[in-house]
Design a protein around this nucleic acid. Structure first.
Lengths: 335, 335
DNA sequence: GGAGGGCGTCGAAGCGCTTCGAAAGAGCCT
DNA sequence: AGGCTCTTTCGAAGCGCTTCGACGCCCTCC
């Protein structure tokens, strides 16, 4: 393996000079810089990550703590990860993949070992057990999601309360008085995952405000569970004409089931989904949806982390404003 | 941050003794070990990753190069990543997430900088541009997938040729003489992704052998494209009674579309999918499928990497034998 | 009772890089 | 011409850990 010292010898300069050429922290004459750069090329030199981390106390790695369950939002999680990885690379950082399942131990490992310079955490629960550690960690962190207490934390998330409100508002505006919500899997609520509860909160508040009847039912992933949930909903509220689908994987089954029941979308029944634009456009009916800007959340999270690593930017909660796009799945309520 | 030296002072021993307690590379008396371990606990010591990497030339990190597209098999990729991350942690390794898109440059970065001790590559193309570098890299690597030339490489993959054959065999055995294949997106074939081409090869070979007519059509992700593809298939081969679905995301749309056309599954039409068991079970019809053992592939890949890092295990291609599970979506051909 | 051999521990030398202080030279002013 | 500043480069220290050789001790064996 080629070392700094070899490059220095090859270029006829000292090691520190090579280091300064690389980091740009001191001015180097054009001639020397060129000579060094040529040597680096010729020898195929790559700085040793460990040595660099040791000497500079910076690893140039961002840790990403990701949930590895498969009971929810896999594509969204993936999309966030993609955005994080790509954006981070753009800023010169690599991404270390940690599992949400390791919990606080992983946080401790990172903060203790200097494995990473900063952390991005996904799948934040309202009262997340990683938060206390995070607050005292020397490394900055950004949450993608919103816990109950955000003091001393930086968060990026979609404003799910507004998202819920927006869905109800849209349907109510079209004259729907009976709205059903196909929610996340029960386990998601049991974990007190922030976004699920907040969406519900927004849905309920707006429903109360606009005097619309709202029925919320959690729903496991899969066609069967969706069918059961739908049947229950129609049993309980036969007059339901509006649906809000929070659970991406329930979208296609729901549309299929409505078709089977002879309920036309959007003539008889309107559907609003909270999902990525991709899903909304690929479904069998082009869905009216509030988009889940996974990509943007990932990018923002990295930007904030990088800002903090560079000493800019304070702790702050950034809630992205949801946007509802009207497509072919919603229309006026039948009379 | 607590250092080895501080632990040593606290325990009243030398730094090297602490190091040996940690690594177990030399015997330590029970008393000393306990004292040191207590100090480690009390001080909350975590070894510095950079220093460790520098001194031992081992980073305890495995790089995972993952495709970050969303045009195919997102859940499968995710499942593999999960398995890799979890298994790796079980062996004491962390996982560095690299994007497939960085291509050979990422391989060079890893091999040059000592960022990782080994690499696992996904989304392998038949003539992958990362392979030459890999062959001369000092770090071991495992491919999840199968390139055309496997000399000097270690690969883990499902035997997709056998998978294709199995699907045709099953349908032909039920009396189907006209089989259509809903394939991956055209881009996947254009990239010469190994598994797609191999599956097709297996399908074709077996069809020829059993004298069955086979129609293969690539298909973009989404309901619309699936509908178009299906329409074309029935135009071209109205007598089609057997379907092989290679593309997970086409499963639910296909079932819905068949229902719309009034073709009952499995009475009129049989469907065999190549997908994870989860998808097979969650679809609107419990699918006869060849399962994609993503989890096992991830685990095997890590096992092989760890073996190589420990000096065991040679270069080898490991093809997992596909298993077809008969469920409710396939039955005898109508006459 | 002295030689030989383990066992347990220590000290010191790096691993490859960053970074600080200082030296060497060049250019300018008085 | 001497002193000053500014630019460019160098040398050396040190980041926290691993690891090798060596040392001291106790036990065993003839």
């Amino acid at each position: 393996m080629v070392t700094l010292a070899e490059v220095a010898r090859h270029a006829g300069v000292s090691a520190s000079t090579v280091s300064y050429v690389l980091s740009g922290k001191r001015s180097i004459s054009a001639g020397t810089r060129e000579r060094v750069e040529r040597s680096i090329q010729e020898l195929g030199y790559h700085p040793n990550a460990g040595a660099r981390a040791l000497a500079s106390s910076k690893s140039n790695v961002i840790a990403l703590m990701m949930p590895l369950r498969t009971d929810m939002y896999v594509p969204v999680m993936m999309e966030i990860a993609v955005a994080v990885a790509t954006t981070a690379r753009g800023h010169g950082y690599d991404v270390l993949l940690l599992t949400r399942e390791e919990g606080p131990a992983a946080v401790r490992r990172v903060t203790g070992s200097g494995l990473a310079d900063a952390m991005i955490l996904m799948d934040v629960e309202l009262d997340d057990d990683r938060l206390p550690l995070l607050r005292e960690a020397p490394q900055p962190a950004v949450l993608i999601g919103l816990p109950a207490d955000t003091a001393g934390l930086t968060c990026v998330d979609l404003d799910f309360v507004a998202t819920g409100a927006l869905c109800v508002e849209h349907l109510a505006g079209l004259g729907h008085r009976d709205i059903a919500v196909i929610g996340e899997a029960p386990a998601v609520y049991e974990r007190h995952t922030g976004f699920a509860e907040r969406t519900l909160e927004g849905l309920r508040a707006k429903a109360r405000e606009l005097d619309v009847r709202l029925l919320h039912r959690p729903c496991e992933v899969g066609y069967g569970p969706t069918a059961t949930t739908l049947a229950r909903i129609f049993d309980e509220r036969p007059g339901t004409t509006g649906f809000v689908v929070q659970n991406e994987s329930a979208v296609e089954p729901l549309l299929g089931l409505l078709r089977l029941r002879g309920r036309a979308v959007p003539e008889d029944v309107s559907v609003v989904a909270v999902c990525s634009d991709q899903v909304a456009l690929q479904a069998s009916v082009r869905l009216t949806s509030v988009s889940l800007p996974a990509d943007e959340m990932g990018r923002r999270a990295v930007s904030r982390i990088v800002a903090k690593l560079e000493g800019r930017g304070a702790d702050e909660v950034e809630l992205l404003t949801p946007k509802l796009t009207v497509r072919a799945s919603s229309g006026p309520a039948p009379d």
